[in-house]
């Protein structure tokens, strides 16, 4: 492998990683996730880490405590699996 090629190729990669990491950091802080963990995770690789971040934060619905029993239930549950009362957060976006 030509060395001069390998290290100059890093510059566009660094730019992409930097933009991705900064965006993930900002988004995680807005959504109340661990921004430092996700930010540094976003700096590791492009674009697989961004896909992992999007799946964890977007595709899996958030959970909130049930109004009746206090146990955490996901927003896509219409009824609480613990006490069978209706979930007031049903349908709420992440």
């Amino acid at each position: 492998m030509n060395d001069s090629f390998s290290y100059w190729m890093l510059i566009p990669l660094f730019i992409l990683l930097f933009i991705q990491g900064a965006w993930i950091f900002n988004d995680a802080s807005k959504r109340g996730h661990n921004k430092w963990l996700w930010g540094f995770f976003g700096l590791l690789n492009v674009p697989s880490n961004l896909i992992v971040y999007l799946i964890v934060t977007r595709a899996v619905p958030k959970a909130s405590p049930c109004e009746h029993c206090g146990k955490k239930i996901r927003h896509d549950y219409k009824y609480c699996p613990h006490c069978s009362t209706s979930n007031i957060n049903f349908g709420k976006k992440n």
Partner: peptide, 29 residues
């Protein structure tokens, strides 16, 4: 949040600079 983002960005630049130096020294592979 803005201050934290700036800290994060400067840390990222530092990390990239170290990686770039390592790549320049021949560890790019």
């Amino acid at each position: 949040n803005i201050i934290d983002l700036l800290i994060f960005m400067s840390t990222a630049i530092g990390i990239f600079f170290v990686i770039f130096v390592l790549a320049y020294k021949g560890y790019g592979k």
